[in-house]
Design a binder for these strands. Structure first.
Lengths: 211, 211
DNA sequence: GTTGAAATTAGTACGAA
DNA sequence: TTCGTACTAATTTCAAC
């Protein structure tokens, strides 16, 4: 299976650099911003929107692609219209040292739209799209449960998808309106009791793809 | 905030029809299949790949757009390259009758890439992209915790994104290789003890956007 | 990094099968 | 409906600045 990631496995350190290849300037981000809204815009129109020349836009566009900053272009579709109106999240606990098998089985499940390895109580979360709830049930009981690597599952249904941004950009942060207090000010008098962080548990082992 | 959904609120019933507007035939699905891989393909090239005439491709392409089956086109980007290499899932318990406020606050958080209302222990799941873990912490403690509508949160980090399909299509199902047994055969002798479905709890109330 | 002109390709309209 | 063609408009490429 092909890895799409991405995330630094050694999550803790603040040592992450942005530009291993290309380092993105404000113009690059502006380009991505436009492409996020309209992935089919012509490079000419893109140049206009961003305020650069066409040749420059072509160069940067190609650089973003070549560098891998842009992974691919895609269409966003309405799942209800295609008959897969039921979405579920399945949290999976994976038997240690069976990650390879788990990943292999995942590759055989085209109804899985997303799979991430997480810290916390479970080891992975997968999102599936199905025609009806019965199919979700069948998927969990017949397919997932039969994978020896799967120790346990927990399924929740998605009732509504409130928000989906194609992706988040660093420049988005400045758009935050009316922050009641700044991050600095607030430090310390937060009702910490309300929240809970879930530690990595055995999750770290998950990062070792070959076990 | 704008709703992207989608999911039938009355999840249970198998009464869902596909084509409220357009009803998609095999050719439509083929088009979507191509567009999923390459959202920037020209309509001419699309016509070739699908095996229809250019004119027909234009007609169908436009129909899919107009119908809403295709919601938009977008670029998929590498979060690490843009400096937002840390991804976290925050499970939120929302105080009843405060959904409207919760949604309003969400709209102010551009670092939220995805938010779904779920059944189960929590009421919503949000996915955020940040530069480092400290920022996730700040987000949860300073911003989310200050929203009165938020009763509690639980945060897990994403260690790896193993798989992301732009979307799932009904036609994907046939690609499932080597199914050990069919769904029908297997019914009954599944180790049900391994899994657990989490009921809707108070989640249903979440569907009423105006409370 | 920009501009402008040639070559190519995309989008549209329409008649025929 | 779908296809094929001809027509118009736009985009991409490539050159020189």
């Amino acid at each position: 299976m092909s890895d799409i990631s991405s995330n630094g496995g050694s999550g803790g350190g603040p040592s992450g650099r942005i530009g291993i290849g290309l380092d993105l300037d404000a113009t690059h981000l502006k380009i991505l911003e436009v492409l996020r809204e309209n992935g089919r815009i012509s490079v000419s129109a893109l140049a206009d929107r961003v305020g650069i020349s066409r040749a420059n836009a072509y160069t940067r566009f190609e650089a973003l692609r070549a560098d891998g900053a842009i992974k691919r272009f895609t269409a966003e579709i309405d799942h209800v219209r295609t008959g897969l109106g039921i979405t579920a999240l399945i949290f999976v606990t994976v038997r240690q040292q069976m990650w390879r098998q788990f990943r292999a089985e995942l590759a055989r499940m085209p109804e899985v739209e997303y799979c991430a390895i997480t810290t916390g109580q479970h080891d992975a979360m997968i999102q599936v799209r199905m025609a009806d709830v019965a199919e979700v049930h069948a998927m969990v009981t017949d397919r997932l449960a039969n994978i020896p690597a799967v120790k346990a599952t927990e399924t929740v249904f998605i009732l509504d998808e409130v928000l989906r941004r194609p992706y988040v950009l660093p420049s988005d942060r400045e758009k935050t309106r009316a922050p009641r207090r700044t991050v600095q000010e607030e430090r310390g008098d937060v009702p910490l009791g309300k929240m809970r962080f879930v530690g990595a548990a055995e999750g770290r082992a998950a990062l070792r793809k070959d076990d």
